[in-house]
Design a protein around this nucleic acid. Structure first.
Length: 340
DNA sequence: TCTCACACCTTTGAAGTGG
DNA sequence: CCACTTCAAAGGTGTGAGA
């Protein structure tokens, strides 16, 4: 598949989204997606450093098929759906790159999940970490990514604890769960709690679900009481500057924070009269105008489940600042004492 | 390949305004 | 008092020059 095709696919996917999915928030899901490669879920990190995901990716890529990877992953009755799956899929087809900087850079697309199957009154903690897919480093040849040697020693895994943690299953299931505040850095001395990665390496985000009641200070992310979900389409290359010019164009066009002539052109192309147009492709300015009909809502709400908010299906939810990121054991210890 | 300054843009919240 | 609008500061983004 040509990279230019990826770009056109993404644009058309965003413009021609089905009306039946308008209630699904920012991310929309094709109901009858015919993907043949499952997302993965596992108790603990049984897949180690993302070997399974790597295999899946290779399969998807070697097929040369533009088919989307599935948005859902189920384990033990708990279902996690990658809410902005189509955007991830389109980026994935062009081999997603994420900028990392010394001060930390947010991901775009970021990970947003819809969760179901939790015990409504049980408390859970949600965490995300980002693991190397393999032991290789890569280089951009101008056309594609190629292995260029062995990976640097992997750094101590840092977890990003969702700022709403711990919350009841009911709350987690009520609204999409976003990790948009997660920042990536290559600064090994980082004190801000950002996730530390090596540039020119391949990574895959992991979502971990821990019951706050059963968690102890000894809880390990790869333990049996931690359920881990991964979505191969969220794999990305960490870079300090975009390598693939198409990727930077993707980002500039679809990230509301990005500026540039391309994004302007695209916004003009998407006529405001188009009823099918959904929030993910609306300019945030438009979203603001919509939002001003009611009380102020968080930017995340504006960028995500806007239709639901407007229809009163979801309540505006102001999220607290992310907590500093202690070691998982220390954090879980705090949770334990908090719940006493 | 990486860093940094820059321009551009959105978000946020306080202050102002009118009913 | 409430809802809405306006505005400025803060912060996120990609770009491009230079190391």
């Amino acid at each position: 598949m040509l990279i230019t095709d990826c770009y056109e696919n993404l644009k058309s996917a965003l413009i021609n989204r089905p009306t039946s999915n308008l209630n699904a928030g920012m991310g929309y899901v094709i109901a009858n997606e015919e993907a043949n490669i499952p997302a993965t879920s596992t108790p603990g990190s049984a897949m180690g450093t993302g070997q399974m995901a790597s295999t899946l990716n290779s399969a998807a890529r070697s097929n040369n098929q533009p088919e989307n990877l599935p948005p859902e992953s189920t384990y033990s009755g708990i279902k996690v759906m990658l809410d902005n799956n189509n955007m991830w899929n389109e980026f994935f087809k062009c081999k997603t790159e994420m900028i990392i900087t010394k001060q930390g850079r947010r991901m775009f697309p970021y990970c947003r999940f819809r969760i179901s199957g939790l015990e409504p009154f049980q408390k859970y903690t949600l965490l995300m970490d980002i693991n190397p897919v393999d032991n290789k480093c890569y280089k951009w040849t101008g056309q594609d990514w190629q292995m260029s040697g062995k990976a640097e020693a992997h750094l101590l895994r840092r977890v990003f604890i969702h700022p709403d943690s711990p919350s009841s299953g009911h709350l987690w299931m009520q609204n999409p769960v976003s990790f948009y505040k997660l920042k990536l850095t290559d600064n090994t001395m980082d004190q801000e709690g950002n996730v530390i990665l090596h540039p020119m390496h391949r990574y895959l985000p992991h979502l971990h679900l821990v019951s706050a009641e059963t968690a102890t200070e000894d809880t390990q992310l790869n333990g049996t009481d931690v359920i881990t979900f991964t979505f191969p389409q969220t794999e990305f290359f960490a870079v300090t500057a975009y390598q693939n010019v198409r990727m930077s164009q993707f980002k500039a066009d679809f990230n509301p924070f990005a500026s540039g002539p391309n994004s302007q052109a695209l916004k003009l192309k998407m006529s405001p009269s188009n009823e099918l147009k959904k929030d993910e492709t609306r300019s945030p300015k438009e979203l603001n105008q919509k939002a001003s009909q009611s009380s102020s809502v968080s930017s995340e709400a504006k960028m995500t489940g806007f239709d639901e908010l407007l229809q009163g299906k979801a309540k505006p939810h102001k999220r607290p600042e992310p907590v500093p990121l202690p070691l998982l054991a220390l954090y879980l210890q705090q949770l334990k004492s908090k719940s006493r």
